[in-house]
Simulated assay, not measured.
Amino acid sequence: MFSIARLPKKDRQSRLVQYLADNPFATDEDLAELFRVSIQTIRLDRLELGIPELRERIKTVAEKSLDPVKSLGIDEIIGEIIDLQLDSQAISVLEIKEEHVFSKTQIARGHYIFAQANSLAVAVINAEVALTATARIRFVRPVRAGEKLVAKALVRSRNGDECKVRVETKVQGELVFTATFRVVEMSSYHNSMDEE
């Protein structure tokens, strides 16, 4: 993550507002590192500017653009969905915690990264039941404890009951994982299984 040389308070607060407009999921820790100030200074700046804490910012983004999930129960989605436009796109956020990493290396277990992307790819489909038929995945770099995964799913094509969904997962704008899923509605899946 790049950092900004120490700025006078007024300039820092102005840049803070601009930065959070583009990066609403930045943590206070990220901002402190970026602006080369203490976490307490960032919290005071947010208070003075009326900028809510991260959880409230995520909730606000989610309330603005969230279709109801049809294909999964909301508790079956790995990560917190903050944008969902059925058959179009979706975004979820997952903070990697101690329970997500290998204790020896503090590197995230791959199945959590995959599960976030896979559940998002299924959730974006406008169907009562949808399943992943195939997945092409690529882990770009290891993810560590404390990092926040932002996964974005885009429906690339739809052919009847079958969709191709591309998911890119980033940490602070850096690509860490990609996947292309073929997702099918349940009725279509039964038919294709019968043909095999």
Results as ranks from 00 to 15, higher is better:
I113Q: 05
D161V: 15
G73Y: 08
K64L: 11
N118G: 12
G110R: 01
R43V: 09
N23E: 10
P24E: 07
R158K: 15
S3T: 15
Q85C: 06
A62W: 05
C163L: 07
F139K: 00
K10Y: 04
I39K: 13
E196A: 15
Q116A: 10
P68N: 03
L154G: 07
E185H: 06
S14N: 13
S14G: 09
V150W: 01
P52E: 08
V93M: 05
V165K: 03
P52L: 07
A115D: 10
F102P: 01
L66K: 00
R6L: 13
K164E: 14
L16I: 03
R15T: 03
D22N: 13
E98Q: 11
D30F: 04
E196L: 15
V150K: 04
I125F: 01
I4F: 12
L7S: 08
E56S: 14
N118V: 06
F102T: 11
L31E: 09
C163V: 09
R43G: 01
K10M: 06
T180R: 05
I91D: 07
I81A: 07
A130I: 08
V37L: 06
I91Y: 01
D194I: 12
F35Q: 04
L84F: 01
I42L: 03
T132Q: 00
E63Q: 14
K59G: 10
V150C: 09
V167T: 00
R6H: 13
D194L: 14
I39A: 07
I82H: 05
E174V: 14
V124M: 02
A135L: 03
Q116V: 03
E53P: 02
